[in-house]
Computed example of a mutant assay.
Amino acid sequence: MLRLLHLADLHLGWTPSFMPEPRRAERKRRRDALLRAAVDWSLRPEHRIGMVVIAGDLFETHTPDEALAASAVRELGRLVEAGIAVVTVPGNHDEITYHNSIYRRWADRWPGVLVQHPFPAHVTTLTVAGVPVHVYGLAYTGGLTPAQRPLAQFPKTDEPGLHLGVFHGVLGDWGGERSLPLDPEALGAAGYDYVALGHIHQHREHRLGRTTAVYCGAVEGKDFEDPGVGHWTVVELGGAPGHFTARIERPPAPAQVAETVTVDAGRFDDPAALETALVGMGGPERILRVRLTGALPFELDVDALAASLADRFYHLSIEDQTETVSDALLDRWASQPTILGTFIRRMRRRLEQATGDEERRLVVKALRRGVHALSGGGAP
């Protein structure tokens, strides 16, 4: 049995430009420590990791800061010194194509196996936990690697052992410029025991014939559209040669995942009640985007609200997607012979007949919600 840690898309060196200083610099430092966290986790005896595979985009660019590059080499060196096998494949962000690429300048010092072949190849055979591990992969190289159509030629030796593919690309022909397409049918036909994939930042598991192919996803993403998965991807490969099976584990990682929540602001009676609800969502490590929706019965200063709550979050962003309906617009809609007009007239009569503040608040809330639903958020 072999246990490996599958990493990809750490994008070390990326700067969160959507955050103001000093959070921007602090979060960059935190993200750049992800590799060290992965190494620390792998070195713990109880996790029994025998191999670490990096399926591309370890760095944000092909020319990361020299201090960051040196730190990455030191961290991967710790794994090698502990007897843990390391395989690194360049991605499309940290592409090997260029003469000044990190992987060209540091090739002779890179710990473990650095894949540099421009075409799919049997890169090496390692012995891990007493098992021969045959590694296949390529490093996309502009002008050499064919990328106009999905790659369909994947080599495989007849030697006994575990057969491991490592590729940074997309299954199928989707992906656009600089996204290496891989033919999923051909990849499955190759008969690898496991394929470690990078490039897609969400965790995805695919069954290609007898082959398990997995995008581990970005442990920690970049922003609200790319939030990160918040876990490591550990693969346990067991069985006999020719019959290895892959079991996927997803233990939590020390990552700050960007979260998005939608809040119906129309269900609150005033800005103070809305603010109290958002305070309850706070946390010193939380990176949160709040989307406010609904029809508001009050004026709302979103910038002032965000400023008031800023200290309760690591970072907070508020998007105002609310709808405000004026009395004049309600009057115009109420005069029309439509379902919406009938609804407004009836609810206004209910409001006139209401006894007590609580009943009035409920009727107003029902009126706002009904108008928002029946009008589709705009004029009928």
Rank of each mutant, 00 (worst) to 15 (best):
L374K: 03
P271C: 10
R74A: 11
P16Q: 08
G239T: 10
F244G: 04
E46D: 10
R286C: 09
G341Y: 00
P297H: 07
D94E: 00
T125Y: 06
A69Y: 01
A265S: 02
L309W: 06
N92L: 05
R267M: 10
L197H: 10
R74E: 15
G175M: 13
L274C: 07
V263A: 01
V325F: 10
A67S: 05
E352A: 11
A265F: 04
G370Q: 02
G50A: 01
A139W: 00
K222L: 13
F224P: 01
P284D: 03
W174C: 12
I248S: 06
L274H: 09
P16T: 07
R350P: 03
V135Y: 01
R361P: 04
E249K: 00
D32W: 03
R247E: 14
A246Q: 10
E26W: 09
L278C: 06
A196S: 15
L362R: 12
A8C: 10
E299G: 04
D40P: 00
L5H: 02
E220F: 05
R149D: 15
G50Q: 00
L180N: 05
G77L: 08
A69S: 05
H315G: 11
V257F: 00
L182S: 06
R250M: 12
R36S: 08
P132A: 00
P146L: 04
A55V: 06
Q336T: 01
L114Y: 03
H231V: 11
P184R: 06
L316Y: 07
T63C: 05
A33E: 11
H231R: 13
H122D: 05
A107D: 07
L5S: 03
W232Y: 15
P252C: 05
E75C: 10
A272I: 14
E359Y: 01
H199L: 13
W106T: 14
L164Y: 12
I49M: 02
D270G: 09
L34Q: 03
A186G: 03
R346G: 15
A186E: 00
E358W: 06
V364L: 14
A334M: 02
S101A: 00
E275W: 11
D270K: 12
E46Y: 06
E159V: 01
T125K: 03
A304H: 10
H163A: 02
M51S: 02
R360P: 01
L316G: 09
L144P: 00
R149T: 15
V214D: 14
A246L: 12
P181F: 03
P184Q: 08
D269Y: 10
T125N: 07
M347R: 14
V229A: 08
A190G: 05
N100Y: 15
A85P: 08
G228R: 08
T245W: 07
G175Q: 12
T276Q: 14
R346Q: 15
L237M: 13
L329K: 12
R31I: 11
E236K: 08
G188Q: 01
H47G: 05
V123E: 08
R289E: 09
I318L: 02
L180H: 02
L79K: 07
R3N: 05
R250F: 09
V325S: 05
A307K: 15
I200C: 06
V131T: 14
F59Y: 15
T342S: 12
A38L: 07
R74C: 06
H11F: 03
V371M: 03
A328Q: 15
C216R: 13
